[in-house]
Amino acid sequence: MSTPEACPMADPYWAFYWPGGQAMTRFILDHRKTFGGKHVIDFGAGCGSASIAASLVGASRVLVNDIDQYALLATLLNFRLNGVSVNNVSFSQENLLEKDLVVKNFFAESDEEKFIILGDMFYDSDFAASLFAFLKRSQKSSGTRVFVGDPDRHPLTEKRSLESYRTKFEKRLVAEYSLPGYVIREHYGFNTAKVFELVF
């Protein structure tokens, strides 16, 4: 078995198909009508599975976003491996938390419902706090709907974390999926992953 120290890249988040990303991806595939014809931003896309799902169900535009360039490359490769066209897909390495305009401009092209999807992005409560503020701004300015796939990591479940956020929101459970055995074995401590809609 190769050890974590042997990994040549720093924190290769894109190298894993995280439980939250799996739930988000499954949810999109199961809700073709919700996402078909819509503009979707995949925030922190990682391996890009949710972006691929959004393209597959006919999203009119998909913005694949990740601050790690390897994630964008991995996503492009995964589109190809899955035989999915990238004609309606754009890639962005911007830190969107500081680029509200990028989000606004992307959504300005569409009169339909707009979505920001996040698979397994909530693993650090400090980062979560700034993420919630960003999502709220986007919801207020563009009317964005926010969907989150997560296996109940602490920033979304722990009372102390939830109470610490200055941005308040409602977390609506919309789906819960059992994780396959190999995923449970790979990601310790979880056996289901949920999809929430966040309303600010």
């Binding site: 078995m1 974590p4 990994c7 988040y13 693993y123 409560s125 400090d126 602490h154 974390s161 790979e186």
Partner: peptide
Amino acid sequence: PRYATLPNIMKAKKKP
């Protein structure tokens, strides 16, 4: 006992 694998180490860095 299980081993601490890379994905778990990565997401554990920020646990409280």
